[in-house]
Structures are given as C-alpha cells and as structure tokens.
C-alpha cells in the first residue's frame, strides 16, 4: 500500500509539476507586470517559450552542455519525485545539490566569461541555500522522529509550531531559490534581472528549455517543502503556500537591486539567527517529541 502511494505521489509529481510550475511562472509574470503597471504576457506564455525553444536549432558552446542540463533536469525531477513519493528528506536535499552541480558544470563547460561568472554565482547560491535545507531535514527529524516525508505528513501537530524559525529562514532563502533575487544571479524573465542571464548565458534552444522545466520542478518541490510545515492542516498549508509565493513576487519587485554579496550575508545571517537558534532551542527544550 505504501509503495503504491509512493509511486503514485512520484508519478503525479513528475506529470503535474511542470504543468503547475509553468502556470505559476505565468501567473508570476502577469503579477509582476501588474505590479509595474503593465499588462504582462498571456498566462500560458512560459509554455509558448518552452515550445519555441524546443524547436530551435541545436547550438552549443560545448557539446557536454546538453548532457549536463539533462542531468540537471532528471535529478531535480528525481529529487522532487522522492519528496512527493514520501522518501527521505535528506536524500532529497542531497540529490538537489547534485542536480545543481550539473547545472554549474554545464555553465563552466562553455568557458565563456559571462557563463563562468554565472556559474560561480549560481554556486554561491547553492552554498547559501545548503545549510537551511540540511537544518530543515534535521528540524523535521527532531519534531517527528523521522526523515521520511510520508511519516512527517502524518504528524499530529504541524511542524510549524516547533519550527517557526526554520520556516522563516527557508522562506527567506526561497527568494534566491525561486530565482527572484538577487538580480545578479537570477535568470527568470523579469526586466530588472541579470541581462546576460548568468548561468544560462551560453545555453540555447533545448538546453535552455531543459533548465527552465527543471526550474518549474524545483519551484513545486520547494513549495512542497513549505507545505510540509503545515502537514495535518492542508487548507492552511495551501493558503500559506499561495500567500508565500505572492510575497516572494512582491519582495522581488520591491528589492530589484539586491546584489549577491548582500544576499550571502543576509541569508546566512537569517539562517544563523532564525534557523540555528530554532534548532538549538528545540534541541535543549524539545528533544524528540
């Protein structure tokens, strides 16, 4: 029974996440446009973009780009599938880091200056996000006694009650992970972001399309992590996810000129103060509940 549920969850994620992620991206672009007093593109614009990119000529700076971006896409999808299949949260986090390594390697492989700097900054963003993702897994373990997402989902008390700090720190890091801010790392389609498109600057056509789809998968995975804090009260969870995503868009438009240096400092400070303090307090007072 559990196995069937796990496979079902994974399959649903693999099919639905790109659709949902693409739609979210469309909504994101419309909302951003409205916040800037524009009309914005059609809702399905992200899908048009992908379809167009898929039909473009194959152009490479280095042939391994194709393989590496495929690895990126597949591994992100696998880590998402593991998450929604209810498997080990730490494994999800580590698989995600492996996936990003491939994206970075693909950008390195081009050996072009923009691509290289993009890769370095992408790497910084992975580094910045890593501690809170590990603390997230550990925090859930301390609250529920397990790393298994399926069992965390069944917890009686939502984890947010014990992990508010970790939640807020993760939310702060989400700005980075959703490719919204800082402007000199981000690669989404807003005019106020990195012009040469950082890490993706040497990718064209299908290669770029794969990176985009991987981003949709990752968006859903990250929102799933947010939802996990509210396991047990799905309605509140969904509301928080929606409000959270809206807030991320708002933050992106209010702070369009955040640099990577600022991001590293502020997000690690947030992780340190909110995340670590939360975990340490939980360790001293909570223990395994």
């Amino acid at each position: 029974m559990n196995v069937i549920m796990a496979i079902l969850g994974a399959v649903i994620f693999l099919i639905a996440a790109p659709l949902l992620g693409g739609l979210l991206s469309g909504i994101d672009r419309i909302l951003t446009a409205r916040m800037q007093s524009r009309r914005g593109p059609p809702l399905l614009q992200p899908f048009y973009d992908i379809s167009k990119l898929w039909h473009k000529e194959k152009v490479f700076a280095n042939p391994v780009e194709g393989i590496f971006t495929t690895a990126y896409l597949v591994l992100i999808a696998v880590s998402g599938a593991m998450f929604f299949g209810g498997l080990n949260l730490l494994l999800v986090v580590f698989c995600l880091a492996l996936a990003h390594t491939f994206l970075i390697l693909a950008a390195y492989a081009a050996n072009a200056p923009y691509s290289h700097i993009g890769a370095e900054r992408e790497l910084l963003s992975v580094m910045v996000a890593e501690p809170i993702l590990i603390l997230l897994g550990v925090g859930f373990f301390m609250v529920t006694g397990t790393f298994m997402v399926s069992e965390i989902m069944g917890a009686a008390v939502p984890a947010i009650c014990y992990l508010p700090g970790v939640f807020l720190a993760l939310f702060a890091v989400l700005t980075l992970k959703l490719r919204k801010s800082p402007f000199d790392i981000s690669t989404s389609h807003h005019a106020h972001q990195e012009l040469v498109k950082g890490v993706t600057s040497s990718f064209a056509g299908k290669t770029l399309a794969k990176v985009e789809i991987a981003h949709w998968y990752e968006t859903i995975l990250l929102l799933g992590m947010i939802f996990l804090f509210f396991a047990g009260c799905p309605i509140i969870g969904i509301i928080v996810v929606i409000v959270g995503y809206f807030l991320e868009i708002l933050i992106d438009n209010i702070f369009p000129r955040v640099t990577w240096q600022m991001t590293v400092k502020s997000l690690w400070l947030a992780t340190l103060i909110l995340g670590v303090l939360n975990i340490v307090l939980l360790g001293f007072f909570g223990g395994i509940l």
Partner: peptide, 23 residues
Amino acid sequence: ALTPLYDVERFGIINTGNPAHAD
C-alpha cells in the same frame, strides 16, 4: 518600447542580452 506604456511583454517579447537566447 520596453517601458510599461508600450509593454512589449504583452506579445511575449523579451529583451535578452544574449544571442544564444534570441530569435
């Protein structure tokens, strides 16, 4: 033309800074 007044993103147009992405 990229400013909000004309808003070319309505048509899905994006000003990329990069030939690899351009049409």
